[in-house]
């Protein structure tokens, strides 16, 4: 990936709005189409950041979350890395539209990420990285 932006984010959900705005500005420079720029990217990134802050680095004291945005081939790549233990992407994604889940308060984040981006992957190593890929026209 050719990284266009890399930033360390304090472990605080109040930072999400600012970080998303910064990433969206970078994505505009990368010519991401308007609809994806103002909908898919901010919603999916907000979800990934929330998860990283609330469930990843939250358990690690003053740990930081790292956000990277860039291009790979003809795709926009967004990566959110935290210092948590990681999670099983498949096991944690449930269908919030199922009748038994629709009135639940939680459980829509990963579902939205996977619906709004073309690919969502998670990998480990040092920390936990969620990579979201959006194919560009």
């Amino acid at each position: 990936m050719r990284v266009a932006l890399e930033m360390a984010v304090p472990n605080d959900v109040a930072q999400i709005e600012r970080v998303v705005a910064r990433v969206v500005a970078t994505c505009a420079d990368l010519h991401v189409p308007q609809r994806q720029l103002h909908f898919n990217v901010p919603v999916a990134l907000t979800e990934a950041l929330s998860n990283a802050i609330l469930y990843g680095s939250a358990q690690q004291g003053d740990a930081l979350v790292t956000v990277r945005a860039g291009l790979a081939d003809r795709s926009l790549v967004l990566e959110v890395a935290d210092e948590g233990p990681g999670f099983d992407l498949e096991a944690c994604t449930r269908d919030p539209t199922a009748p038994e889940n629709i009135e639940r308060e939680d459980g829509r984040g990963l579902f939205l990420m996977r619906r709004l981006m073309d690919r969502v992957e998670r990998y480990g190593g040092h920390g936990n990285v969620v990579r979201m890929v959006l194919e560009l026209p």
Partner: peptide
């Protein structure tokens, strides 16, 4: 409103209930 994330949607669901 610009956008609503999953936790915002969740709050609407819980308030509605």
């Amino acid at each position: 409103t610009g956008y609503i994330d999953s936790s915002g949607l969740g709050v609407l669901v819980s308030l509605s209930k």
